[in-house]
Design a protein around this nucleic acid. Structure first.
Lengths: 192, 192
DNA sequence: GGTTTCTTTTGACCTATATCAAATAATACA
DNA sequence: TGTATTATTTGATATAGGTCAAAAGAAACC
């Protein structure tokens, strides 16, 4: 069980606090392609991925799926706004591989935030870390060519590139799958 | 002085805690076009805008300024990654009008985070709020036409649109100023 | 108040990437 | 293992918005 490590890595907790915190998490085994949350539902849990990859996505008016974020081992995964504001989720959460995740409900998380000062700190640090990631992606998307965005992805999330469908990566990077396919072709040519 | 209100609005503090917290902030009056932080400097302070508008921006390789974010009354303003990680800022921070801001240093903020559980909570909530905003912008930038992005801006930040230079808004929205100028022209035509 | 400087608008042209359509390849499943 | 389904590649064509250049308008400054 790696959950304690994920937590200790961000904020060191005394053993007893850590044990108490862990006890509020529940282990869930989920199959490939399972939806953890659907659009319109209130997202009641925050997940931490122990094994597998997940993604959040939404449907454009024309029905196309747009991948919004990928979640890998050690990352927390949720439809954040829905989870914290308790309003209907704009996103689907899906596991792309057979996975193991730990989950905690909003009530229990609030309870832990209130009980442990350090827990609040953990929340703050994870939140600013996520903020930095999103800002980086925004910069990449906003001012780089399709090619440069793919390179950014290769650098920032090299493992994901080879684990998930090309179409998912393309929509994550804000381009069509045709364009990404052409970029990949060009890159292999250049590399060999 | 509105600082106490800004804080109480997010997390209610006991009067004595609030007073102590406020005492660590310093009031600064800054003139239009003043840079609070330059690229390459470590951003040593977090600001809260009491009056005026600020922006963060960076320079592309070709020397063009790209506005990354606007900050208005009641918002905290900083080169967040630089401030929290204490590494050189990628961004400039600039006040676009004659302004009044409150500032706090990293050391003092950390001291307050450690001293008050509620302060940590404030940090967490502000951070998730910012995260939501950035995610919204990312979605707008990634999948909307230039026209739709301007409409998003009119909705989300109507006051800013009429306070800052067109060129700043254009780069914030990921388009050229020529394009934004044409969009505005088309919109006035439609509206009248 | 006139001149300089900065900002916005307008026009002509161009390019990166989207769209549409179809072929091929890979994966799942019976 | 063969067939159905889904994902990826390839080609032809279209377009939103970029680039460059210059004019018009607004603001700043002596």
């Amino acid at each position: 069980m790696k959950l304690p490590h994920y937590i200790q890595n961000v904020v060191p907790f005394p053993a007893d606090e850590l044990e108490d915190i862990i006890s509020y998490f529940e282990k869930e085994t989920v199959q490939k392609n399972t939806l953890l949350v659907k659009e319109g539902q209130v997202c009641s849990k925050l997940y931490i991925v122990e094994k597998g990859v997940g993604r959040s996505y939404y449907l454009k008016e024309d029905g196309k799926e747009i991948t919004q974020w990928f979640f890998v081992e050690g990352q927390f995964m949720s439809s954040i706004e829905s989870f914290f504001q308790q309003n209907p989720s704009l996103y689907y959460l899906e596991m792309l591989e057979d996975s193991v995740v730990y989950s905690i409900t909003r009530e229990n998380l609030d309870l832990l935030f209130a009980r442990y000062h350090n827990m609040e700190k953990l929340g703050r640090l994870l939140s600013t870390e996520m903020l930095t990631r999103v800002v980086n992606k925004l910069n990449a998307i906003q001012f780089q060519t399709a090619r440069e965005r793919y390179d950014y992805m290769l650098n920032e999330y090299p493992d994901i590139v080879n684990r998930v469908a090309l179409g998912h990566i393309a929509s994550y990077l804000g381009m069509t799958q045709e364009t990404l396919s052409r970029i990949r072709k060009a890159e292999t040519r250049n590399r060999s």
